[in-house]
């Protein structure tokens, strides 16, 4: 069976800066493929190249077997796109936005009206169908953006940060919809920096950083890495470095790192470790200045999975990677 998305050595350079660096991967039909990475990792640039918005500097990609450069028309007919911004036409109504998008995808009149009505129902926008989109809230605009991407019953749906900055209810609705679409056979390419979302929705996850794919794996691998990266962060009045080896003896602690004036205790069982830290402090007469339980950050998980550290590129465009000691 043809891959839904096939990417070979895709590269994007902006002058001397390489935003996406020879990445290759395959997305099987019917998959929810998560593209996970921190801000500036190259996620959106990759999506923009795959959807024809931006031209790659090098490399190739196909959508349902159609080359994105040489057979762009056929490739684009098979895809729906939700960009990272809700790019709706503010001066049109929800209905007119959908009808216009349907025209761009060549739907016949009766079909586009039927489909637009169905999508307005699905996204709870039927009551405001004739209202000017300018009056819509952020969540409503986001829902409309996704509805517009579904107008052509695409085989492959690109979703770039679909739930960012949305209220809990909208997030749940959109996640439920992604599952339903996938159950009906749509391949989903989901770009996100939210590990929980990737873990919950995806069947395969690629982690990208500095324009390179660090790892392609299953949500289970991500979940395991996430579980390992729970931690308790504590600061004592006397932050002696020598305490680190003693702290390793607390129940559940698998690693201790000294970070500034604080100790970070990585643990599989944060509640046990928390009570262990209090006992530890009491027994040694140490005063606790602050104590917090922390969930895993994308950086922690990236390091855990790839053994490499994330170097943010916003200030310097170097591409050095530091190996974790």
């Amino acid at each position: 069976m043809t891959s839904a998305i096939s990417v070979t050595s895709l590269t994007k350079k902006f002058g001397d800066f390489t935003a996406v660096d020879h990445i290759s991967f395959e997305v099987e039909q019917g998959e929810v493929f998560g593209f996970l990475g921190p801000n500036g990792a190259g996620k959106t640039t990759t999506t923009r190249m795959l959807t024809g918005i931006s031209t790659p500097t090098a490399g190739t990609a196909t959508i349902m077997g159609h080359d994105i450069l040489h057979h762009a028309f056929a490739a684009k007919e098979r895809m729906g796109v939700v960009t990272d911004l809700s790019n709706v036409y503010n001066d049109l109504s929800a209905w007119d936005n959908l009808i216009f998008t349907a025209k761009l995808y060549g739907l016949e009149r009766h079909h586009r009206e039927e489909k637009a009505a169905e999508l307005l129902d699905m996204f709870g926008l039927q009551e405001v169908r004739d209202d000017n989109v300018r009056e819509f809230s952020g969540g409503m605009k986001r829902r409309l953006t996704i509805a517009m991407a579904l107008i052509n019953d695409a085989d492959v749906l690109f979703l770039d940060e679909p739930t960012t900055a949305l209220d809990v209810q909208s997030v749940r609705t959109i996640r439920r919809l992604i599952r339903e679409l996938n159950e009906n056979g749509t391949t989903i390419f989901l770009t996100t920096h939210n590990m929980q979302e990737a873990n919950e929705l995806c069947s395969t996850i690629a982690i990208i950083n500095q324009g390179k794919i660090g790892k392609i794996g299953t949500p289970e691998e991500l979940k395991q890495a996430m579980e390992k990266m729970h931690s308790v962060e504590v600061a004592f009045e006397s932050g002696r470095h020598s305490l680190a080896s003693d702290l390793e003896g607390i129940e559940g602690v698998r690693e201790v790192q000294k970070r500034g004036d604080k100790f970070r205790l990585f643990t599989l069982t944060p509640p046990d470790t928390l009570s262990g830290v209090f006992t530890f402090a009491r027994e040694r007469g140490l005063r606790i200045l602050s104590i917090n339980t922390l969930g895993p950050t994308l950086e922690d998980v990236f390091v855990e999975l790839t053994g490499e550290e994330i170097v943010h590129r916003s200030n310097s465009q170097t591409s050095k990677k530091k190996r974790r000691k």
Binding site: V81, N87, L104
Partner: peptide, 14 residues
């Protein structure tokens, strides 16, 4: 600026 131009670029048309 509003990224609505991207809609044309990702739509099946030259």
């Amino acid at each position: 600026r509003t990224k609505t131009f991207d809609r044309y670029l990702s739509a099946p048309m030259s």
